[in-house]
């Protein structure tokens, strides 16, 4: 069960028309004030067991909200949305994937201790018959540029044990 606040506040002659989602983790049993992610109007709500008991009641302008929605969007305007963590609009979500998690393969040639690994593509062919692979990665032969870079790293002392 998840309720919403569909904000209809008049903003410059047009209704705000923003859906503010009340995620059950935060709002299941909850009483307080919350802002609209788009126009900032503050609403008072009281939820019991996932159901709206009171509200949403608009608060006078200038009221400081207790919290913000985690996510909001404007369904009538296609894909306009307010993802979590927008200062002053939505609540930050602490576990936001870090910047390095892009959802696309991250190509690397060296581990964090500076030794080579086959973390990039495409890899040169090395199989023989029927998909057969040898037991050794002949880096010098297959990927000479990585091997050369590795030698440089060794010389510069960038290759560590831990």
């Amino acid at each position: 069960m998840c309720d919403i606040i569909w904000c209809k506040k008049d903003v410059e002659g047009k209704p705000c028309d923003t859906v503010n989602y009340l995620d059950p983790y935060c709002f299941w049993n909850w009483k307080g004030t919350i802002n609209c992610a788009n126009c900032g109007t503050v609403y008072a709500i009281h939820m019991i067991q996932g159901h709206m008991y009171k509200g949403p009641d608009e608060q006078p302008a200038g009221t400081k909200p207790d919290t913000s929605p985690l996510y909001a969007d404007k369904p009538l305007e296609g894909y306009i949305n307010f993802p979590s963590g927008m200062e002053g609009r939505t609540r930050p979500f602490q576990c936001l994937p870090r910047h390095i998690y892009l959802g696309v393969p991250d190509m690397v040639k060296f581990s964090i201790r500076g030794r080579p690994l086959r973390g990039w593509r495409p890899q040169p062919k090395s199989a023989g018959i029927a998909g057969q692979f040898p037991f050794n990665w002949e880096m010098k032969k297959l990927s000479p540029e990585v091997w050369a870079e590795y030698q440089e790293k060794i010389a510069k002392g960038e290759v560590k044990d831990w």
Binding site: P97, Y101, L102, G103, V104, P105, D106, L117, R118, G119, W120, R121, P122, Q123
Partner: peptide, 8 residues
């Protein structure tokens, strides 16, 4: 997160 692979 669909990104950490070893190839091929």
């Amino acid at each position: 997160f669909n990104e950490a692979y070893l190839y091929p």
